[in-house]
Amino acid sequence: MDGKEMHPILQVEGLGKSFGKVEVLRDISFTLNKGRVLSVIGSSGSGKTTLLRCITSLEKANKGKIIIGGETVFDAENPVKDSARERRRKQLKTGLVFQSFNLFPQYTALQNVTLAARLAAKESEAYKKDRKAAIEEIRARGLQILSDVGLSDKADFYPWQLSGGQQQRVSIARALCMKPEILFFDEPTSALDPELTGEILRVIKQLASTHMTMVIVTHEMTFAKDVSDEIIFMNKGVIEEQGDPQIVFENPKSARLREFLNKFTD
């Protein structure tokens, strides 16, 4: 084990979530270390999206605890009423890339990437001192991130002028611009034509090489095996199996996982 792996950045403990009477997540516990990539696989309806939504505060879990970077951001036993500022600070520990991009249609690629950062900056000291410089710095950062995802020539394009793959790359850039500690992806390629998935997977791989901590829900098994340090297989709201990709994919213990994987090798 190298030093990096000693630092858990995400700890999920006994997480549970019900919608009405339906229990969608049950006793979910796992730990993710800094700089690692975790892929979450599992059949439709197994609770993958709900898990991401609970960790990124889009949904409120009913049970358990979520700890990010050593700080408890959610504890069902000890609910806290955060101020708006506190909520924003906790929210920004995570970033989320949606299956359907959810870009803001009236803004250009660059504006999409920088909007939230510009709004957040308004409360900062640097902004109050020198507004122009603060905005220019955010703009430069946005352009840099866009060029990192291979879109430096599309900065002034509106979402409708971009292909699905390009739109998804803008949405990744938008999430990155807020400097999240962990970046979550919910089936980032599912809404794309097959020939466009490659460009997204390349961007994610490139992020992995910069040691960005990521959690990816995906149905791309080859990719998951290739990019991940760890795999979680979910079934009916529980973690059925987890571990090293080599082991999970080559030597699955659970019959359900074997059955699930078989569907992809047909």
């Binding site: 990124t56 505060s57 889009l58 708006a84 924003r88 929210q91 920004l92 995570t94 970033g95 989320l96 949606f98 359907s100 959810n102 870009l103 803001f104 249609p105 009236q106 909007l115 939230a116 709004l119 957040a120 949405s171 938008r174 999430a175 807020m178």
Partner: peptide, 29 residues
């Protein structure tokens, strides 16, 4: 679409920022 509000939220925008900066112009259109 709710996705617009959710995108605003995960980017740390407040509800009113999301409404006035993201949703309103789309509604007007």
């Amino acid at each position: 679409p709710v996705g617009q509000y959710e995108a605003g939220q995960v980017l740390g925008m407040t509800r009113s920022q999301t409404f006035f900066r993201v949703v309103l112009l789309q509604v007007i259109k």
